[in-house]
């Protein structure tokens, strides 16, 4: 392939992706599940736990951390979960209604629509991170001292893991009803394991380990260390990578465009 041809193809496919991004963004704004859950929900939780933190003495469960300190990573992971769980909402419906199939009759493969949606969801996740950091530190005074390399690493791994889990739901659910059912159960299970109701440091031995080695609990644990400038435990990082590999395998194995 000559460089000029490569350039032309690249330009063309960027043009196609750009058009898809524009359409997916408009649709997301008209039906803002992802936006509402992914950004609105953490905002509400932030305010809630911020005020609880002001009224409760620090050193939760002997960890030396206040409520808001502990909840900053939990809220971040919850926002990733909310965004990932809203992914099947659009994709399963688009597949069920025949929209993906309709697109596959054009020169553009429907995987491009998935790419566009994932890019938008990454933007949402970034917004949620910024809101949580700024809110946690500036408004509620969590003494964050983020160690950038580990922080970025933990976030990238966490987002990859949680989004891949969303794709597993897209791959396995044949109908939108089924996607909502699976998504709903998964959402609350992951919320619990991320420490929304009970932080791992407050839990007893078996439950704490279950949370630490769960998909959302491991993500929270890795982020928690990295926002306080500590090295995340290798077991937490490996747990996340392990889940991501398994989820990716299942998603790829069972994914259908029609």
């Amino acid at each position: 392939m000559t460089p000029s041809l490569g350039g032309a193809l690249g330009r063309r496919s960027r043009h196609q992706l750009g058009a898809l991004l524009k359409v997916q963004a408009k649709l997301s704004l008209r039906e803002p599940y992802g936006l509402g859950l992914g950004v609105g929900f953490p905002l509400v939780l932030m305010v809630l736990f911020g005020f609880i933190s002001k009224n409760v003495a620090g050193n939760v469960g002997g960890s030396g951390l206040t409520v808001i300190d502990l909840y900053v990573p939990t809220i971040m992971v919850i926002s990733f979960i909310a965004i990932a769980i809203s992914l099947p909402n659009t994709l399963v419906r688009d597949r069920e209604s025949g929209w993906l199939r309709r697109i596959s009759t054009t020169p553009v493969h429907p995987s491009r629509l998935l790419t566009a949606q994932l890019i938008l969801d990454l933007v949402l996740a970034a917004m949620a991170i910024v809101i949580t950091i700024v809110g946690g530190q500036a408004i509620f005074g969590a003494p964050l001292s983020v160690g950038i390399p580990y922080f970025v690493l933990s976030l990238v791994l966490a987002i990859a893991e949680i989004f891949t889990l969303g794709l597993v739901v897209v791959a396995l659910a044949t109908t939108q009803t089924m996607a909502s059912a699976i998504g709903g159960v998964l959402f609350f299970a992951l919320l619990f394991l991320s420490g929304l109701w009970l932080q791992p440091v407050q839990a007893g031995a078996p439950l704490r380990d279950i949370m630490w080695y769960s998909p959302s609990g491991a993500a929270v644990r890795a982020i928690l260390y990295s926002v306080f400038h500590a090295t995340p435990p290798l077991t937490a990082l490996l747990t996340i990578v392990g889940y991501t590999v398994v989820f990716a395998f299942v998603a790829v194995r069972y994914f259908r465009w029609e």
Partner: peptide, 30 residues
């Protein structure tokens, strides 16, 4: 796919997508 246009028997557009937007999108594909 570049020169064969297809109208499928059963296929819906996303509910909230506007007609003009759908056409702009497809035009960008070709």
């Amino acid at each position: 796919r570049e020169f064969v246009g297809v109208q499928l028997q059963q296929s819906a557009l996303p509910e909230r997508l506007r007609v003009g937007e759908a056409l702009e999108l497809f035009a960008a594909f070709y």
